[in-house]
Design a protein around this nucleic acid. Structure first.
Lengths: 208, 208
DNA sequence: ACCCCCTCCCCCAAAAAGGGGATTTTGATT
DNA sequence: AATCAAAATCCCCTTTTTGGGGGAGGGGGT
């Protein structure tokens, strides 16, 4: 019997990525998806699934609340929280709200399947801590400051250092520093890769 | 009497976007949707609709063939082709295969409704040419060549002109030309914006 | 007191942008 | 087979923008 999975994420790209990965798996049945909390709750009025992959950051309702609401409507359903690097602080709160596991959004298929099967069988999947403490510096990688994210967004808009400096009322040297820090923190070597990385990891695009 | 609409697109995000737009319209009845040609044809074995919104690019069968097959099974059904910018070359072929209209995937609701109602009433909706020829160069915008897309992908990977040249066994001048053409065709002013545009319009990254 | 963030500056090399122009290859149409 | 348009290839020039390596001071929070 296939594991019924539901996806909640406000980023179409994430839904697309996950669902295309899961479609290749015969043991998974994609029951549906939602891009906001309301339509997710709407789904659970009439239906239920085995596992929900749920983004922590949602536009209308935080994943933390939604998690509790879904568990209230369908206690058998297992919830796996999804997030990007920069939202790790909320993971513990998801656990308190009834989630059974946690995954980064860019998790490879093998681990995704393992996690789904584990929580579906009643297990937990909270191994993210190991991953990050293992590398010590990886934690740094995730932590983009407010200003850095802001600059990153403007870089992706196609603005040059001077233009960004102009917009933020700072010197172009400052913007240059931020740019260099971004490149260094995200382990990329130029702006193109920076923008791509930012997009794929939804560092920009989510809460601009 | 509501216009029965069916959606065919391999991107869940597109289906979700379109259906959520159409759900708000009382004059539309969403009859169903499919993410591939096979399940679309399956639907038409037993049922029929007034209008099909059909992606040009499908995984198992090209929209061009599917278009003809659907028209064969249900001649009264009107088909509107859907695509992104970079697939305009196929639009004429859709017309030849029996489609009644064409829309970009990110078309606003008002125009979407107008198009559906027009083709349902027996009319045609091919005004994309006006939009693009209005700006003369806009037609160019959509037409990225194979090589340009290839270079764009490598640029987004973070490679420099020299590295790309090395990989493609051409001179860096050539890659530079492609880069300039991309910037010019897509109406952006630097690489960062180029990468962003490419991502948002799924010229790259559509199959992560 | 300390660390991190934000701010700003230096130098220099590398890469990209903006403007030209040119030739060969390829594909489709007579 | 000849032709033509489009694509792909290559080169010149200059200016602007990034990238890589530093260092350094002020302010806020723990």
């Amino acid at each position: 019997m296939a594991i019924r999975v539901f996806i909640v994420d406000d980023h179409p790209m994430v839904i697309e990525g996950l669902s295309s990965m899961l479609r290749s798996q015969t043991s998974i049945e994609l029951a549906g998806f939602a891009t906001n909390a309301a339509s997710c709750l709407g789904f659970f009025v009439t239906q239920s699934v085995d596992v929900v992959l749920m983004d922590i950051n949602l536009p209308d309702n935080s994943g933390i609340e939604l998690c509790a609401l879904v568990k209230a409507k369908s206690p058998i359903t297992k919830i796996i929280a999804l997030s990007n690097f920069d939202q790790l602080s909320y993971v513990e709160r998801m656990k308190e709200s009834g989630a059974s596991g946690y995954l980064l959004k860019n998790t490879p298929l093998a681990e995704l399947m393992e996690a789904i099967e584990t929580v579906n069988a009643g297990g937990a999947w909270w191994n993210y801590l190991e991953k990050f403490t293992n590398q010590m510096e990886a934690k740094q990688v995730m932590m983009l400051t407010r200003r850095e994210k802001e600059v990153l967004g403007l870089i992706a808009d196609g603005l040059t250092n001077v233009e960004i400096a102009d917009k933020l009322f700072v010197s172009s040297s400052t913007v240059d520093s931020h740019r260099k820090n971004l490149i260094s923190k995200l382990h990329v070597k130029n702006t193109a890769a920076l923008v791509r990385f930012a997009f794929e990891n939804k560092i920009i695009g989510s809460h601009i």
